[in-house]
Amino acid sequence: MTAALSRNLLADQAADELRRRLTAGEWAVGTKLPGETTLAAELGVGRSTVREALRMLAGQGMLRARQGSGVFVERTEPVADGWEAVLQREAIASIVEVRAAIEIEAARLAAVRATGADVAAMRRALDVRAAAADASDREFVDADTAVHRAVVTAAHNPVLSELFETLVPRVAAAMVEMIGLLGLRGREGAPDADEHAALVEAIAAGDADAATRISRAHLDGLAADLG
Rank of each mutant, 00 (worst) to 15 (best):
R170Q: 08
R138W: 05
A172K: 14
K32S: 10
Q13K: 09
T166C: 14
L43Y: 02
R66W: 09
G116R: 15
A91T: 15
R108I: 03
D81P: 00
E77T: 03
V176F: 05
P169G: 07
L226D: 12
A101H: 13
L226K: 02
A205I: 01
V159R: 10
D134E: 10
N8F: 01
A53E: 05
E201R: 13
A190D: 08
A41S: 14
A172G: 05
V200M: 12
F72L: 14
G180L: 01
D134V: 03
A101S: 14
G61L: 01
A100R: 15
A143I: 06
A204S: 03
R216G: 13
P191F: 02
R64W: 11
A224I: 05
R19W: 13
L5C: 06
E26H: 07
L222T: 02
L199C: 08
G30M: 14
M175R: 04
G206C: 03
M1F: 08
V147T: 11
I102Y: 03
W27E: 01
M1W: 05
A131R: 15
D209Y: 00
E177K: 11
R55F: 11
Q67H: 09
F140G: 08
L160W: 01
D192H: 02
H148D: 08
W27D: 02
R129W: 03
S6C: 04
V151H: 05
T2P: 07
V98I: 12
A133L: 02
R187D: 15
G25K: 08
Q60S: 07
A154M: 05
T38M: 09
D12L: 12
D16F: 15
L199I: 13
D220K: 11
E77M: 06
R123W: 03
V176S: 04
A224L: 09
T49I: 09
R185D: 09
G68T: 05
H196C: 09
E77S: 07
R75P: 07
A65H: 13
E165N: 15
E74A: 15
F140M: 09
G183C: 13
T166I: 06
G183A: 09
G221C: 03
D134Y: 01
D12K: 14
T145W: 00
A41T: 15
V171G: 00
A125Q: 01
R75I: 06
V29I: 04
D16W: 15
A172S: 11
T153P: 02
A80V: 05
D142T: 10
S161G: 11
L199G: 11
L43E: 06
A143F: 01
I104S: 04
E42Q: 15
I104A: 10
T166M: 08
A101N: 06
A208I: 04
E97T: 08
V128P: 04
R51V: 07
